[in-house]
Design a protein around this nucleic acid. Structure first.
Lengths: 298, 298
DNA sequence: ATTCTTATGTGAATAATTATCACATATTGA
DNA sequence: TCAATATGTGATAATTATTCACATAAGAAT
C-alpha cells in the first residue's frame, strides 16, 4: 500500500452525493445532516486539490474529475460492503425485545416488521408498547423507539425522527360537520394525547388563539387519539409518521396544511453496552435504514 | 448502497495488519502507534462480531474469516488509492523551500532527496539548514524538520521521530586510545552540541556520574560534532538517525550500547494553512513515508 | 532457569475528526 | 415577489482515533 488513502469519510460523502446527484439525498442515505455532507465535500476537494462538483445554485454537477472518480469509488465501497456482509458468522438467534410508543408501533413498525423478521428468521421477537425507557433500565426490553427529550441518562440514545403535528379527522365526520376555518374547530370535539401542550402549540402557531372552549377528550397516547379520529370521534393532532398511511388510504383528512414541530422528538434507545449485541445493532440499523422520510413500504 | 459500510479506519488497520502480518509493522506503515492499531482491530472485530485474528502471544494469525476479508479489502483500498492518484490535476510546479537541522540534513535528507526530487521534476527545491522555526514564521521557508519540544505556537506541527543518543567515535581514534569502560571516557575529549544536557543525561543514565573532568569542545550543532568525531577529534553523542549511515559504513563506532532518549524530539513544521499547499503536503507525506526506522535507502 | 528483547493488549486521557445547529445564500417556480 | 427547496458556513458538540504509560506474554540470549 504505497500510495496514501484520501480521507475516507469525506470520500464516502462524495460517493453518495455524486451517485444520488444531491447533497440532501446523500445526507438522507448516510443518516447525517446535509451540512455534514457539505463540509466533507469541501474538505475532500481541498485535500485532493481537485474540484469534484460544479455548484449551480440549487444542484450539483459532477466535473469530469468527479465523474472519473465516482465509479471507482462506488465499486470499492461496494466491494467492502459485500466482503463484510459475506463473512461467515453465526446466525442471529435468541430473543430481541422491542419497545415502541403505541402510535409508531401500530402505524409504522407493525407494517414493516415483516421485512425485519424475514431477514433474521431465527430471531424470536417480542414487541411491547412502551411510552418511556423504564423497561430498558429494568432490562425487560432491549431496544425501544420513544418520544421524549432524549435526555435519558446511562442509556445509549440516538435521535431518530422529528415529528410534525397537524389536525386530522375522519372524512365522514368532516362531511357532516365541515371544518374550513379555524373557527369551525370550536364546533368540534378535540382529542388530546397525554397533555394539552401539543394542541396549544399548534393553535398558537395558527393564530395566537389558546385552547378554545369546545369539547375535549384526553387519551393516554397518540395511537388512541388517532384511532378515535379515524372512527369519527373528533379531531386529533396527527403526526407525519403515524398519520401518513391513514392519510394515504383516505381514513383521515388533514383539513389544515399548517404543521408545527412536536415539543419533543423520536429517539431510538438501548442500554449502554447494548450496541455490542448484534441483534440490537441489527434492529437499530434497520430502524434507521427504514426511517420515515425514506422509501415507503406499500 | 444498501448495505452498511463497516467503520473504515479500523478496516484500514485490519488491512495493513493482515497484509504485513504484524500490528507493529502495520502501525509503522500507517504512521500511528501499535496501540492505535490494536484498539482499531479490537473495535472492528467487535463491530463485525467476527474474530479476524488468532492471537498467539507474540504474533497474529489470520482466521479463515480474516483471510477471506483481506484480499477484498486490499483490493478496494488499492482501487481508491489509484483512483485518487489518477485524478487529472496540475503538475506540481513552483518553489518549495525546505529547512532542516544540519545533522538530519546531511546524513538523512541529502541522501534521499533525489528520491523526492525525481517524483516532482518540475518543482524547484531550496534547501536550508535551520535550527529553529524562525524562517517559517518569516515565510522564508515553507517546511522544516526541526529538533525541539514541538510547542511552537501558530504553526502546524507533527512529531516525526524520537531520537536516541549514544557516544560515537572514529575507529582510528579508538584504536590508538581504547574506550572499553566508562572510566576510559575521561581520557577522551568530549564533543558537545549546543549545551551539555544530552551528555549529562547519558552519563547519569550510565552510572550516575556527572560530567567528568576531561577536555570538552562545544560546537553549534550535532552535525559538526558528528563530523568532528568522524575525523577523530573526540567522542560525540550520536543519534539513531544521523549516525546510522556512519556506523554502517564504518566511519564511526558506538563503543557503548547504552542509549538514552534525547531531551527533545524531531518535528516536521509548516505554517498553519501550509498543509493546503500541495507541494508542502507532498513533501511532508514523503518525509513521513521515508521516515527513519523504515526501509533504508542504500 | 533467569533475564532481555520484542510484540501485543488495555484503560484513561488527549487530539482530531465528524456531525450538528442555526443561520446565510442562492435558485426555481408558483 | 414570495414561498419552497437546496446548498454553504462558522461555531459548537459529539464521536472517533490516537497517544500514553503501563501490563502481559513469548521467544531468544546468557
Amino acid at each position: 500500500m504505497l500510495g496514501r488513502l484520501p480521507p475516507l469519510y469525506p470520500l464516502r460523502a462524495f460517493e453518495a452525493t455524486a451517485r444520488t446527484g444531491s447533497v440532501t439525498a446523500a445526507a438522507r442515505e448516510l443518516n447525517i445532516t446535509h451540512s455534514a455532507v457539505s463540509h466533507q465535500l469541501r474538505s475532500l476537494e481541498n485535500y485532493l486539490q481537485v474540484q469534484l462538483f460544479r455548484r449551480s445554485g440549487r444542484g450539483l454537477l459532477l466535473t469530469s474529475e468527479g465523474a472519473a472518480l465516482l465509479p471507482e469509488v462506488t465499486f470499492a465501497f461496494e466491494k467492502i460492503i459485500s466482503a463484510a456482509a459475506g463473512l461467515e458468522r453465526p446466525v442471529m438467534t435468541g430473543e430481541l425485545r422491542i419497545g415502541c410508543v403505541p402510535g409508531i408501533l401500530n402505524y409504522w413498525l407493525m407494517p414493516r416488521l415483516d421485512d425485519f423478521a424475514r431477514t433474521y428468521p431465527e430471531l424470536r421477537l417480542r414487541i411491547d408498547a412502551a411510552t418511556g425507557p423504564e423497561a430498558i433500565y429494568r432490562s425487560t426490553l432491549d431496544v425501544a423507539i420513544l418520544y421524549g427529550d432524549g435526555a435519558w441518562t446511562d442509556l445509549w440514545v440516538k435521535r431518530w425522527n422529528d415529528v410534525y403535528l397537524f389536525p386530522v379527522a375522519s372524512p365522514i365526520l368532516l362531511n357532516s360537520k365541515p371544518l374550513r376555518s379555524l373557527r369551525d374547530l370550536s364546533k368540534h370535539r378535540l382529542l388530546f394525547a397525554g397533555d394539552h401542550r401539543e394542541w396549544q402549540s399548534w393553535l398558537s402557531d395558527a393564530d395566537g388563539l389558546s385552547l378554545m372552549k369546545c369539547q375535549k377528550i384526553t387519551m393516554s397516547d397518540a395511537y388512541l387519539t388517532t384511532q378515535a379520529a379515524v372512527l369519527g370521534q373528533g379531531v386529533a393532532l396527527g403526526d407525519t409518521i403515524t398519520s401518513e398511511p391513514l392519510l394515504e388510504n383516505g381514513s383521515l383528512i388533514a383539513p389544515f396544511s399548517r404543521k408545527v414541530s412536536g415539543t419533543q422528538r423520536m429517539y431510538v434507545v438501548c442500554r449502554m453496552g447494548g450496541m455490542e449485541d448484534r441483534t440490537v445493532r441489527a434492529f437499530i440499523d434497520w430502524v434507521f435504514a427504514s426511517r420515515a422520510g425514506r422509501a415507503v413500504v406499500s
